Computed example of a mutant assay.
Amino acid sequence: MNVIDVLPRDAIPSIDEPSFGSEYGGDPDDDVLVVDGDPPRAYPIRILNYHEIVNDEIDGRPIAVTWCPICGSAIVYDRIVDDRRLSFGVSGKLADDDLVLYDRETESEWKQSTGECIAGELAGERLTMRPGPMTTYEAFREDYPDGVVLQPEAGSDAAVQNYDSSGYDDYARGDGFGLSAMRGVGPDREWSRDDLEPKTVVLGIERDGEALGFPVPIVESAGGALEATVGDTDILVVSTDAGIHAFEEPGFSLRLDEGGRLVGDGTAWSVATGASGDGRRLRRVPAKRLYAFGWQDDHGPDAFYQLSA
């Protein structure tokens, strides 16, 4: 693991007292990270690009909503470790181009894409991941009509208040990857495989000591939905315009209809929420959304799902 200093600690300010409302000033097709609760909450990537961490509490449980623009990694973690409540900030370091968090209670450092503490008093501990799927704001508003959205941080300067995403969008669309492609500093990274692009979006699932990443093109080539087993858990992975999602396999067959809904067991199921037309709900699997190079950095080149020949 290559850890480097890039910025001073807290140069990228976390949001520690988030506020929410029903209005959003961005575009309908902006990506948002969703945490289910009462009410459900959307965290726009447009805002997370400038803050990277939101220390929040939902339904009485402290959570950290985290985002690394370089690795495209969106992950929600519990903020409780060994019965200790932690608050996270941006360390200014990168580990293999991935955001390094630090906790303010012990100043230990944590690799965002794995949740592992890599330095400090809590070294070796690992954060518990919670479901936090990514979808568009338009899909969030349609599927969660009572949902609320993270508001711009009070007191931010004018540049940040605008949350201009153009530079981040250019990076996401470009061929390069890593810090050098994002900021123009540091060595260029190499990518030796030809079956996946380095910034292919992957849904990573870790269960029972096993890790398997599901690239969006692979899921789409399987018709948008596929079944797999990770550890001891049977998984249903679904990719539509509403994002890529993972649920525990429910014990009956589901297929995607032309409208992008899951259909099975006599009813239709929302891909974004897992809710059915008759009041049932699929159980969502905690997963992380990130670029292929970040998943490979953490788990190696063989940790990707491949369709059988």
Rank of each mutant, 00 (worst) to 15 (best):
V3A: 03
I4D: 00
P8I: 01
P8F: 06
D16V: 02
D27R: 14
P28Q: 00
D30P: 03
D31H: 10
V32A: 11
V32Y: 02
V34G: 14
D38N: 15
R41K: 10
P44M: 09
L48G: 14
N49K: 05
Y50N: 08
I53Y: 05
D56R: 05
D56F: 09
E57I: 04
I58N: 11
A64G: 10
A64E: 00
A64T: 01
W67Q: 02
W67N: 04
C68N: 09
C68R: 04
C68W: 04
C71N: 08
S73N: 07
I75K: 02
I75W: 00
R85Q: 08
F88Y: 13
D97W: 10
D103N: 05
R104D: 07
R104I: 02
W110S: 07
Q112C: 06
T114D: 10
G115W: 10
G115Y: 10
E116P: 12
I118A: 05
E121H: 09
L122M: 14
A123H: 04
G124W: 09
G124L: 05
E125R: 15
R126A: 13
P131H: 15
G132Q: 05
G132K: 04
G132P: 06
M134Y: 00
E142G: 02
D143P: 00
S166M: 03
G167R: 03
D169L: 15
D170S: 13
A172Q: 06
R173F: 14
G174D: 08
G176F: 07
V185G: 02
G186E: 10
D188P: 03
S192E: 11
R193M: 12
R193E: 12
D194G: 13
L196T: 02
E197H: 07
E197R: 06
I205M: 09
R207E: 15
I218Q: 06
V219N: 11
E227V: 14
V237G: 03
V238C: 07
E249S: 15
E258L: 12
G264V: 10
G264L: 14
T273Q: 05
T273M: 04
S276F: 02
R280K: 11
R280T: 12
P286R: 07
A292L: 03
W295M: 14
W295S: 14
H299E: 08
P301Q: 02
D302A: 15
A303W: 14
